[in-house]
Design a protein around this nucleic acid. Sequence first.
DNA 1: CTATCATGTAATCATCGATTACATTTCGGG
DNA 2: CCCGAAATGTAATCGATGATTACATGATAG
Lengths: 222, 222
Amino acid sequence: MPARQTSKRQTSKSRTLRQTSEARPYHHGDLRRVLIDAALQLAAEGAEVSVREAARRAAVSPAAPFRHFPNRDALMAAVAGEAQRRFRVEIEAALREVPSADPLARFRAFGIAYVRWAIRNPAHFEIISTGRYFAHGGSAELTRDNAELVALTEQMLADAAEQGLLQSADLKRVLIAGRALIYGFARMNLDGHFPRWGVAEDEIERMAEAVIDLFIVGIAKP
Amino acid sequence: MPARQTSKRQTSKSRTLRQTSEARPYHHGDLRRVLIDAALQLAAEGAEVSVREAARRAAVSPAAPFRHFPNRDALMAAVAGEAQRRFRVEIEAALREVPSADPLARFRAFGIAYVRWAIRNPAHFEIISTGRYFAHGGSAELTRDNAELVALTEQMLADAAEQGLLQSADLKRVLIAGRALIYGFARMNLDGHFPRWGVAEDEIERMAEAVIDLFIVGIAKP
DNA sequence: CTATCATGTAATCATCGATTACATTTCGGG
DNA sequence: CCCGAAATGTAATCGATGATTACATGATAG
């Protein structure tokens, strides 16, 4: 057996194993987490995510994952949760660099950060976006988390409207349009459309900015 | 052995069957086509598309499909081709009802027809859009077909610009934005986002129109 | 009529998700 | 401190799938 290397988990396996540095708690310590990470990495490598392969990487039997997830979808839901968490961290970091007084600038920053993350983490974005792993096995935390992101953009547009920056009073429509634009751009990249549209690889991020700017100009009061 | 039931292959005694209309060539006549149709229907039913199930529906052995397609992806590429053909027929029908003199109205009609088809044929749209089955096994015909659709929208915007209807001179940007909007809307529906965004099932098509109108107003010269 | 080719079948593999029975580790209550 | 229950992992196995190989058979040209 090609033993998987040194899982350096130490929990408080207090006394019998006194080597604190070697305090391997059980077999794995936190197989659940290890499996999620393995699956995430698998996705990042462009490989297909299978339960067995995740188990293999965790150096554990093919049946072991099912102790932690009732089925594959549950694992994928957890993976989606983790990916979404990372996604959200990035979005919020980007927003922190924009003055909250300028809602349209915030919307712009949001859109750009969104698309950038989607471009640079295509497999993770795919897992997040499909929603196949949200609704069903997805934790309530995941959907709440997502709802907060929705509310975030809602707030931006509401602020913009309040400041009289918008042309249309139909906020919901503007919101959906903006989201569709951003999401559509990200998915076009993911789904490999841009070559057909004459957008080269290294133009994509710039194009994203241009497109978002176009949208903002379109909805802004002249 | 549970013998494969009643293979009702009436050996057509070719010579005797001179009926040109009955020129049944071999067992199936056109297994390839039957398989594609079976797969399409499978997708339409929301079931997973497997080679074996398609074979089953064609009442043929599990290995038979591989005489017509080198692998599953090739079958899926053919399925995507057929779906795309149907899609294109619908789009062009919709465009025929709009005067060619009004490019923005044509763009609107295109977008609405696009989204409508995507909403009403989700599984087929999924197969078309992913691009997973385009580039690789996809026939050159498929990509050419697609390029023509791209050119269609390009032409609309070019016409609009020529008539001085557009605000921006950067046509490519407007084109990509419009596409991203339409595609994004269609995919949001497909990926199950709308519940989260407070858009009810029966509002979706209306919302699509509203969103597209918003976009057109945004890019049009005031 | 017959040889050849296209088309389909049977048998078989490896992989995967999933389940069941069993083994081992952990940990808390006596 | 010990022991038994609960948690965690393993082994064996199932059924389905994509794919390949050797073989059978219908169709058709010469």
